[in-house]
Structure formats: structure tokens, C-alpha cells
Amino acid sequence: MGTSQDLRLELGPLSCSIRPAGLPIPETFVHEAQSFDRPVDLSIHVTHDPAFRGAPLFEPMRVNSDGQSVTIVAPAFHATHNLANSKLAIQISAWEHLKLTLRFFAALTLARRGYLLVHSAGLLRNGRAYLFIGPSGAGKTTLSELSDATGHEVLGTDATIVGFRGGHPIAWGTFFSSEPDRSSPRGAELAGCYFIKQAARAHLVALPAHASVSQLQRNTLLMLDGLGRDLAAEIGGVVLDTCMRISRHVACGELSFNRSPSFWRLVDNG
């Protein structure tokens, strides 16, 4: 069962309108998307095409751009984003492939406007957001579970949007996670960015601002390959500016943690 009605999906500062054609949107996806009720600019037309098959996470994706549009071709889907009017046309064989496609184009659209989709767990403490940043396996899910167990709200376990609103740094949750039920659509003032690794002893080391910029840039979920040099340079510059701005406004450090919620004490004292 599902719906063939248009679906509106809000991701922090990015709002998406999804129009399904020939492929009803599953109820589970509607539930996840509608829980993220918040402004758009990405108009998505999804077409069912059973000719597209394969597992997108394990198959090569090819990104191309002529400067006017960006196209991804993968065994499981084909997507074209018109950069001028923000219309995104996706052809997929199954809805399970939509999130990966959407994540790529959301990251691209957000980056051009000065927002970053960061590979991070976003956690709330006393009404403020803290990002725990790292690649797969660094411990984002573990930290989320530890915080969840101690009553901290989880914005997201795998990807968080960061940017500025009214001059203040803000983090927003996303549903780009393996556990969307534990994610929240809320936005909150960003108080800290911590680059994480698991260790026998918990400790926190403050990072110089340039190292924070480097870490933020490396953990931004954005592929520049294939975009074409001009577009990639434009977006690369905006991403650098955003990373620099965040590092000036927010405490940043390298956090080693040992599967105990005591890491919050280090963050509070850091």
C-alpha cells in the first residue's frame, strides 16, 4: 500500500516536493518524510522504471555535469538535476533507492546555498546541538545510543545539516540514517563539533581552527568528482567559506570516547 499523492519533504532549510509517477510512495517513506515538516527548492519527479536494477551502494555511480545540469547514472537509478530551476527527475525501480539519490542532490543543493550535510550524529543537550563527526565505523551510532539512553534527543544518527540562520549556527536533523525512527526534524543552535574516535580512555583535544576546517570539509557528504571543474570550484569555495565560518563560531575538538556517557562531561568542560 502507498500513496500516489505529491509528498512534501522538508530537510532543515531545504524543502522538497516529490511527485511520484507510476510508483506509489510507500507508507513507511511517507511517515518518515512527513515527520520532517519544515522551506523548497527541490522539485522531484520520480518515475518508476523497472529496467533499473542493482544495489546502488555496491555499484558504480557515474556523475556528469555540463554546467547546466547534473546527472547520475547508476545501475539502480538515473537522475538529472536542472541547476537553473532546481527540478530533479529520478527514474528508479524501487523506493529503497530514493534516499541515496536524494542525499546526493540534497547535499549538492544545500552546499550551493551555504549549508553542509555533515557525516555526523547530531545530539541535543540542554536545547543546544552537538555534532559528533566521523566516517562509518567511527562511533556515531554508539554515541547516539549512549545519549538516547541518558535522555538526550537525537537529531540524527548519520547525517546532520549545518548552516546559519540570523547569524547563528544551526544544526538540523535528517532522515538520512539507517534508523530514521530515532531521528528528529528539529533545528537547534549548534554549540560544538567533535571529530570522534573510539579509544580505551576518553579525552578531548581542542583543535586549531584550520584543522577544524579540514575535518569539516573532509566529512561533508558531497562528491565534487564529475561535477565539472567550474561548478566543482564554485561549490568547493562555498563549502570552504561555510566550514571557516562554523569553525569561528563553534567549539571544535577531537574526541576520543570509550563507550560511556562520560564523554558529555568532557564536552561540557571543553
Binding site: 579540514s214 562528491m223 565534487l224 570550484a233
Partner: peptide
């Protein structure tokens, strides 16, 4: 000519638009 670079504190930061690599 297609590199993004910025001066930041005592560093000069470069993003290689061809491969996304960052240089400080």
C-alpha cells in the same frame, strides 16, 4: 585556475575541485 582557495588565519586552504581533496 579551477581551484577553490581561501586565506584563513595563518593558513592557506585549498580544495581541489577535480577530486575534492583538501590541502592546508
Amino acid at each position: 585556475e579551477d581551484l577553490a582557495w581561501r586565506e584563513f588565519e595563518d593558513r592557506l586552504l585549498v580544495v581541489d575541485s577535480g577530486n575534492g581533496q583538501f590541502h592546508s
